[in-house]
Amino acid sequence: MTAYAAATSTSLTIRADLALTLIDMLVLVTVAIVAGGSKKLGMSKRRAALAETLVNALAAVGMCLSMAIVAGIAVQRIAAGGVEPHGSGVVLAMSLNVAYAAVNFWILRRWKARNMAAASALARAQICLFSDKLSSNLLIAASLATAMIWEGTMIARFIDPVAGLLIATMTARWTIPVVRDTARSLRREFRRARRPVARLGNERL
């Protein structure tokens, strides 16, 4: 439905929503596989932690990629004089994002509860991811509604690209903690991996 809305409108924010949705789906499928696989395969805590770190790295890369795509298109549209959103997909996308916001808010609350019960880098990354999704949903719905209200004016031409820049800014805000946690986890895993090597070298000496 999001792809259909993007194809039947001229809105940047709807295309941004489609890009965010596809990237987030890739991350969430990977999270589901890792979370389920670590239990079924009986992974050691160390391997499970490494798998979660790699998933967090994927989430960070995905969020950075979506931020770059949205910001790049928004700057191009502003430089071109803006584009007013038109098409049947505008109303559909606005309705979808209101529904998405409700669903993502519910999921966000579940991740927050899980993190309070057992804090982890994976839970924190998902909290950032769904906070980003929720803020994007609200911004998209609000920008499309505002553009419809100001239809035919110069303001309406710039609401869409400015909303795209705001979405990119919010994504950057939620990406920073994920990148920081991932870097710390990778550094910790690297140090753990070096300890056996250093110990073996000392034994040989």
Results as ranks from 00 to 15, higher is better:
Ile149Lys: 06
Ala79Arg: 12
Ser66Ala: 15
Leu129Phe: 14
Leu144Gly: 10
Leu96Ile: 15
Lys39Gln: 13
Val55Lys: 00
Met154Tyr: 00
Met63Phe: 12
Gly36Phe: 03
Asp132Thr: 08
Arg46Tyr: 05
Val29His: 07
Asp132Glu: 11
Ala102Lys: 06
Asn115Cys: 09
Val91Tyr: 05
Arg114Glu: 13
Val98Ala: 07
Ala48Gly: 13
Ala35Val: 11
Met94Leu: 11
Val61Met: 14
Leu65His: 04
Ala79Thr: 02
Met116Asn: 10
Val34Pro: 04
Ala142Met: 13
Ser131Cys: 08
Ala35Lys: 06
Leu134Ile: 02
Leu166Trp: 04
Ala119Val: 05
Val90Asp: 09
Met25Leu: 07
Ala60Arg: 02
Leu129Gln: 15
Thr53Met: 06
Phe130Ser: 08
Leu96Trp: 04
Glu151Arg: 15
Met116Trp: 07
Ile149Leu: 13
Arg77Glu: 12
Ala48Asn: 13
Ala145Thr: 02
Ser120Phe: 01
Val75Cys: 05
Trp106His: 13
Ala113Val: 10
Leu144Ile: 06
Ala147Trp: 04
Trp106Ile: 14
Val55Cys: 11
Val61Asn: 01
Thr53Arg: 00
Pro85Gly: 09
Leu144Gln: 09
Gly72Gln: 05
Ala113Lys: 12
Gly81Lys: 01
Pro161Met: 11
Arg77Thr: 02
Thr30Ile: 00
Ser120Pro: 08
Ile107Asp: 04
Trp150Ser: 07
Phe130Pro: 11
Ala57Ile: 03
Met63Gln: 15
Leu92Lys: 00
Asp24Lys: 11
Ala121Phe: 01
Ala80Gly: 10
Ala93Gly: 14
Met25Thr: 07
Ser66Trp: 01
Ala79Asp: 07
Trp106Leu: 15
Pro161Gln: 08
Leu26Gly: 14
Gly82Thr: 02
Ala80Glu: 04
Leu41Thr: 11
Ala68Ser: 11
Gly87Pro: 08
Ala99Met: 14
Val98Arg: 06
Ser120Asp: 04
Gly72His: 05
Tyr100Gly: 04
Met63Thr: 15
Trp150Cys: 10
Leu54Gly: 00
Ala101Val: 02
Leu28Lys: 08
Val98Lys: 05
Leu166Gln: 04
Ile149Val: 14
Ser44Gly: 14
Ala60Cys: 08
Val103Arg: 09
Val70Ser: 06
Ser38Met: 09
Gly42Ser: 03
Leu144Trp: 05
Ile155Met: 12
Met94His: 10
Ala113Tyr: 01
Ile159Glu: 04
Ala59Gly: 12
Ala80Met: 02
Asp132Ile: 03
Ile69Asp: 12
Ala145Asp: 01
Arg157Ile: 10
Arg114Pro: 01
Glu52Ser: 13
Cys64Phe: 13
Ser88Leu: 12
Met154Lys: 08
Ser136Cys: 07
Ala35His: 02
Val29Ala: 09
Arg110Leu: 13
Arg77Leu: 09
Ser95His: 10
Val83Leu: 10
Met154Cys: 00
Val162Ser: 06
Asp160Val: 12
Leu96Asp: 10
Ala49Ile: 03
Arg47Met: 12
Arg46Lys: 06
Ala113Asn: 09
Ile78Trp: 00
Ala93Val: 07
Val31Gln: 09
Gly37Tyr: 03
Leu165Cys: 05
Leu108Ile: 15
Ile155Trp: 03
Ala35Asn: 06
Ser120Gln: 01
Glu84Met: 07
Leu139Val: 14
Ser88Trp: 07
Asn104Tyr: 15
Gln76Asp: 07
Leu122Trp: 05
Ile107Tyr: 15
